[in-house]
Structures are given as C-alpha cells and as structure tokens.
Design a protein around this nucleic acid. Structure first.
Lengths: 176, 176
DNA sequence: CGCAGGTCGGTGACATGTCAACCACGGCGC
DNA sequence: GCGCCGTGGTTGACATGTCACCGACCTGCG
C-alpha cells in the first residue's frame, strides 16, 4: 500500500500502460471477430481445442499451431490437468467443456483408475474444426499483431512477458 | 485468408504472442484483484470514474491518474461521448452506468438542448471513491508491470501499441 | 410544413466467467 | 475397517458483455 504520495506514471509509462490496455480491448476484439467469422469459434473454444491437439503432437504451448496429427495420438487430457495447463479455473473449464460438448466438439470420457475424474476427448468433428481454423487464425494473428512488429519489438515483447509473468505464474488462478 | 500454406509462428513470434495472451489472462486478473480488494471497484468501474474526473482536469487519457480537482469542475459527460472515448459500445456503457448508479457512484442527468441524450455525472461519493482508489491502483500497476520493466521495454511497449492500434482505432467497437 | 433517415440511449435475451458450496471418491493413519 | 482429509469435478446464483432491436428525438430537404 502506498503510505506516502503515489508516484504517478510519467508520459512514457502512461503510454506503455495505455498500449497494454488498448491492445487488450481492441486487438483481442479484432482477432476474436476474425475467429468467429472464419471458423465459428470463440477464443476460448480455440484454446481448448488446440490444447487438445497439442497434447498429441510435440509440445505446443499455445493456440496458434495445429499441424496434421501423427498416428496413434491420444487427443485426450484430464480436466484438471488441462485447466492447470491453461491456467483456467476448474469451474470455468467445466462449464466451457459442457458447452463445447453440446456442440459436438469434444466429449467427456471416464477414467479407468479413478472414478472421480474424467477426460476431455477431441471428437473427429473437433479435430476437423481446429485444423480448418488454425491457418486462418495464424493469419489473423499475423495480420493484426506479429507482422506489424519489427524483430526487435517481437523480442522485447517476449522479454516483457517473461519479466512480468514470472512472479505471477506461481500464484495461478484464484482457483475455486 | 490464407490461400496457400500458412506461415506458422516461429519461436520468437510464438513467445511474443504467448506473452501477450498470458499477460491478458494473468496480469489483468492480478491487477483487478488488487483493485477489488483495495477499493471495491472493478476495472470497468475505475475506468468510468477516472474518465469522469479526467474530464475535469487537464486532458487525461487513461485511468491511472486522479489528482485533486480544480474548482468549478464539470464532472459530467455525455454517454455517447464517453462511450466513444473509452471505445466501449453504448450498450455496455448504458448497462454499466445503470449498475454504478445503483451503487451511488454516478448519476444520470438530462441534457438541456437535447431530449434524447443524458449526462453521466460523478457523485460526491464517486469522486471520493476514485480519489481514494487511485494511489493504490497506480501502486498496483507499478508493482505488477511498470516497475518490472526497463526504460527500453517501456518505450518499446509504447511503440508496439502505436503500431498495432493505429489501424484499429478507426474501426472502433462493433458498435451496436 | 412534414417526413426520411440518422443519432442517443435503453432493454431483454443470451453467452461467458466467477464464487462458493457441494458431492463422491481415493488414500492414509490407526 | 474406519474416520478424515485432500482431490477432481459439478452446479447454481450472480456479474458482466454482446447482440439485436426498439423508441424517442433531431435535422435536412422538398
């Protein structure tokens, strides 16, 4: 808590803070609009799907990849494991999976060893959807963000993420 | 639309994209949590309030300032003007003002020349609230973001905002 | 004047998230 | 075997936003 006078933001700092906030508002809106138009998915849908296919390929941390699937893929993850990985609350994921299940994109499946848990499994339609969506999405992300930045700006943005997120990753989501 | 093969993101690009997305998720959550705990406000509340006091002082574009008010301030703005300035949809603002009105932070007031429109007016309690909240909020923003960044990172973040937002500012919000 | 079309806002239905229980099960100590 | 607690997940009530649409009101023009 600021016991004394607060140090207000100077012009550069304000500009940076504003940049972050405006991007959160406008850039996200734009990319999500593209995604909805091109593929009928919300960003949340896309993330879930891509984290399910990602599980099958090599380690893919984010949502902007979806290559062809190697044979014998698993396409399934425990709810809690997926929630932790995405840093979503279990509640959020559960609600969202329910909705995606009704649209036929994923389905729940029991776990053998543990009667409490369940898997989320990608349906064929889910796979089809994400594979179709991915190229458009990457294109959208490039068009609105990545391709507008210089290599230096890209590098620095990555650095900023490391510096800022480091201390936060631990604390996680409020966790139900 | 990607007619040919999509250009997937390379490692640096992916890192930058991930940084943006994780910050949107975790950093925002953290700062909002602080704000709610310290001042009982949501980020949206804070923005509205600060844009109302801002109108009274010199031109303040963002939400991280709230100095003492000069005498004879107006503390009022047209709904549509405020919505445009914040780049919120009118619907969103209208709903939100209704809720804030019920908490006594703002109130609506008729416009003389135009029977359609209304002003949003800061109540004394609203002013009190934002002035109390501001120092904590700046502190929180510094602690989680600004003070973790080097001057160069701050400068580049600002640049990124300009480059990315430039093309978007025009398009505005889906606008009801 | 009189009205066509834009502007200002408000509303209701619906989507998404959060928070706080809650339930059922698994594991462990005794 | 039993009692307890931690885990995995679900649920319902509620907050916030979006979208589509309404309605009142201005304004320019014939």
């Amino acid at each position: 808590m600021p016991t004394t006078k607060p140090r207000w933001l100077d012009d550069d700092e304000m500009r940076a803070w504003l940049a972050y906030r405006r991007m959160r508002l406008l850039l996200s809106a734009e990319i999500n609009r593209d995604l909805a138009r091109d593929s009928g998915l919300s960003e949340a849908d896309y993330d879930v799907l891509s984290n399910l296919t990602a599980a099958t390929t090599t380690t893919r941390t984010t949502a902007t990849t979806a290559g062809t699937t190697p044979t014998g893929a698993a396409d399934r993850r425990r709810l809690s494991e997926l929630a932790a990985h995405m840093q979503w609350s279990k509640s959020r994921l559960s609600h969202h999976i329910t909705r995606m299940e009704q649209r036929g994109l994923v389905r729940r499946e029991e776990v053998d060893g543990d009667a409490r848990g369940s898997f989320v499994v990608l349906t064929p339609q889910g796979r089809e959807t994400i594979e179709r969506a991915a190229p458009h999405h990457v294109h959208s992300v490039r068009r609105h963000l990545i391709d507008r930045l210089s290599p230096e700006q890209i590098r620095v943005l990555g650095e900023i993420g490391d510096v800022v997120l480091g201390p936060l990753e631990g604390e996680g989501i409020p966790e139900d």
